[in-house]
Design a protein around this nucleic acid. Structure first.
Lengths: 150, 150
DNA sequence: TATTGTTATACTCTATAACTATA
DNA sequence: TATAGTTATAGAGTATAACAATA
């Protein structure tokens, strides 16, 4: 709640400068991670949908809402994932209009593989930092996580 | 160079966990910033090319190489920006095969406007943090900047 | 002969509108 | 009548191949 006596909150100029620096740093990190790990032919929107299914089956309608794309687009995306064997499509026993999309074992494996590849680039760099720097980043990650969730 | 006696560098597990947390935080921040600031009809690839021209004119060939797209794609993108009045296309007096693409005043204004909009979302959130948190983020931004540049 | 830029053509992802089946 | 999903069709953005102009 209270702040230490030696530090003062930043003024508008300082806030603006820090925000710009942080924003750019985050964008660059994201871009590097994305480029450095080619994701083995799994396009961003395909991976994104797979990840949404990790904690359970979803209808195409719900997936379209979450991913902010149209229903026909999601039909197409799900169709691709079915053909690739990464998800299964089943009729909902409770509502004949509905379809449930669910991860296959292969789909789960694809998610894990993509995550591992992406994590490698970052891990190699974090490992080279001093303990002090790692501690700072751990605190920063928590703060950034809170900011992004708001 | 030397580290404080009270902290120890992270082991492989800790590095991996921290990396994943940081990577996700950076991705989420980037995505939020991108979504929250709609960029006034300026698509990402259009903005990206404009930004490349800030420190001087470039040929379409060079722009295509930098942005990692094909020459025909860049022809199309530059064509759009010319139609929008954001860049100008001029013959290179030194080499008749070449064309030089250059920012117009309107193009410069569009870059500034986009940057301002993007900065606002982040600034609003950074301003609400404690002085301690802001200080942590300032250190983190410097470290992340170094990582991204390597 | 090599390089710069454009045009021709095709593929992918996206969208809106129209259609089918179920509630 | 409303909702879930699909199919039909069109609009961006991208790519490769072929072409014209210049070096």
């Amino acid at each position: 709640m209270t702040q230490t006596a030696t530090t003062r909150a930043l003024g508008p100029k300082g806030v603006s400068a820090l925000s710009e620096e942080l924003r750019l740093a985050c964008m660059r990190i994201s871009r590097r991670v994305r480029f450095e790990s080619v994701d083995g032919d799994l396009a961003p929107h395909h991976f994104s949908v797979l990840a949404r299914l990790e904690d359970g089956a979803r209808t195409p309608r719900r997936l379209a809402d979450i991913e902010k794309v149209s229903a026909p687009s999601m039909t197409r995306t799900v169709g691709y994932l079915v053909d690739a064997g990464l998800v299964g499509r089943h009729d909902d026993p409770e509502d004949g209009r509905r379809v449930l999309v669910e991860l296959t074992g292969e789909g789960r494996a694809a998610i894990e593989q993509t995550r591992r590849r992406r994590g490698r680039w970052m891990s190699e760099r974090v490992a080279e930092l001093t303990a002090q720097e790692q501690a700072t980043l751990a605190e920063a990650a928590a703060i950034l996580g809170r900011i992004a969730a708001r």
